[in-house]
């Protein structure tokens, strides 16, 4: 139980992953599938970001002191959050936006073709 109080971030990620996957496969409405896709991707983004957190650290922009006009930067790694995971997730966010745009485009096309976004009705119309 004590372990859970520290590491509930992983549980949250797992729950979100499950919700996202369920919505992507099981939902009937195409827009809801897109929403599931967003949840799924964001769960992974949260996983990476929480992986890069360090207790008592700040954002990964180096602090400095100024002595007689000369800036000295502090470069101890434990002072700053992990920059690597943040960069990876910046990429993943952009990819997520692009995928969502593409999926919504297709939904729009499907809607103008069949007049509905419900998967079972579309399959009925395809025959």
């Amino acid at each position: 139980m004590e372990w859970l109080q520290i590491n509930y971030n992983y549980l949250l990620v797992i729950v979100l992953l499950m919700i996202g996957l369920w919505a992507m496969i099981g939902k009937n409405n195409l827009v809801k599938k897109c929403i599931g896709m967003c949840i799924f991707q964001n769960a992974i983004i949260m996983f990476f970001i929480s992986m890069g957190a360090k207790a008592g650290s700040t954002i990964p922009i180096l602090n400095y002191t100024k002595v007689n006009g000369v800036k000295t930067y502090f470069t101890e790694a434990s002072m700053y959050a992990n920059p690597l995971t943040q960069i990876l997730m910046l990429t993943a966010i952009v990819v997520g936006v692009a995928t969502l745009g593409m999926a919504l485009t297709l939904v729009q096309k499907i809607y103008s073709e069949y007049g509905t976004c419900e998967e079972d009705e579309i399959l009925k119309k395809i025959g």
Binding site: N7, S50, M51, A53, A55, A77, S78, N82
Partner: peptide, 9 residues
Amino acid sequence: WGDPNSPAN
């Protein structure tokens, strides 16, 4: 969570 010495960090 938040371990500064974990491999990823």
